[in-house]
Amino acid sequence: MLVVGFMLRSDHLGVTSVIRDLALNSRCYETLIHFFRSSAWSLESLRTTWIQVVHKTAPLLVVDNRVVLVGDGMKQTKEGRRMPGVKKLHQESENSSKGEYIFGHLFGAIGILAGTPQKWFCLPLFMNLQDGVKTILGWRKVDGEKEQPSHVVQMIEQGFAAAQIFGNALLLLDRYFLTVPALERLNAFHHASTARMHLVTKAKANVVAYEHPATKKPGRGRPPKKGKAIKLKDVFKTHAADFQAVTLTLYGKEETVQFLCLDLLWGQGLYQELRFVLVQRGGQCSIVVSTDLTLAATDIIRLYGYRFKIECTFEK
């Protein structure tokens, strides 16, 4: 009853909002309070049950026999400096009206795309504090247990936990999450489980990738791990004639874009092969990346279009 109440309540005034919106007797207040200290349930079991309900009943978006997950981090400003989990955070937003540093909470959220071809929306699956709670988690830390992973790695872990229930999945993330630790954790999950989850994200404008090394190296020494370095932003000019034009449904309307698909190595020290899709749309250039080398370039562009549209809707 409390879970349903939190989903339907019209305000955020605690347990009393659940009592009002569900028209419960006021004498239920103390009983509902005990719910939060009960050992009869766990957050993990509630989360697993919710994901199973979504898997069975929701009209999910499926691309190449894989569901589409969406992940993102959110920074919520807080006035109380001594609140649990509040810390100084840096904002990467390009909006000049936002401060460069804030005090607040850093949340990580995972959702899944559901709906109809006319209207896709993100159905939340999980959200938690992913930074500023290192000391709290240390109180219950078991000997030999590793420290809390970074925000980026936690997003990969949460996405893969959902993928194990839904089956194979694609996780849409923004360019902040394209890091070597994220790819290393994803590869570790693939070695330990039969479930598969691939990332579709965006690269920074100054991204540098590498060609495959030569098959043979003259002379003695260790064979090279990478080939020639390529600044992908320069490819828009040097290989302009190689771009292909295609008409896709982006942001709810038909648009013509030009793209070039390249499979290159990326990641200092890792040198993992990724699929880079260079896109030109309305005079704007962007680079979309996928860890799945079998995913079509048009599907990669369309998938990131879903994520960008949902992100803009959420900000509004």
Results as ranks from 00 to 15, higher is better:
P218A: 05
N206S: 09
P223G: 12
G221A: 06
A214N: 06
M197C: 00
K202D: 07
Y210S: 06
K217V: 00
K217M: 13
P223W: 07
V207L: 13
V207T: 15
P224V: 04
A195Y: 02
T194Q: 13
T194F: 09
K202C: 12
K202H: 11
K225Y: 10
K204N: 14
A203L: 11
K225Q: 15
K217A: 08
L199T: 07
G221P: 01
E211K: 06
A203V: 03
V200Q: 10
A195V: 00
H198C: 04
R220Y: 01
A192P: 04
A203Y: 08
G221H: 04
H191Q: 10
G221D: 03
G221K: 03
L199F: 09
A205Q: 14
K217W: 06
H198S: 11
N206T: 00
G219A: 04
A214F: 02
S193N: 12
R222W: 02
K216H: 09
K216C: 02
K225E: 15
H212A: 02
Y210E: 08
K204H: 13
K217S: 15
Y210R: 08
P224F: 12
H198L: 05
T201C: 07
L199W: 03
R196T: 01
M197F: 01
A209C: 05
H198A: 11
V200H: 09
N206E: 10
G219L: 03
S193C: 14
K204T: 13
R222E: 12
K216D: 08
T215V: 03
G221T: 00
H191S: 12
P213E: 09
G221V: 00
R196Y: 06
K204C: 14
K202W: 11
V207P: 00
K202P: 01
N206H: 09
R222I: 00
A205E: 15
E211P: 01
P224W: 08
E211M: 07
A195F: 04
N206R: 06
G219Y: 05
T215C: 11
V208Q: 15
N206M: 07
K202I: 00
K202Q: 14
A214C: 01
L199M: 09
T201M: 07
P218Q: 05
R220C: 05
H212Q: 09
E211L: 05
K204D: 14
T201K: 06
K225P: 03
V208W: 09
S193P: 08
A203N: 10
V208T: 10
A214D: 04
A192V: 09
K216A: 05
T215F: 08
H198T: 10
K202E: 13
T201A: 06
H212D: 10
H212C: 08
P224D: 09
K216Q: 10
K202M: 14
P218Y: 05
V207I: 13
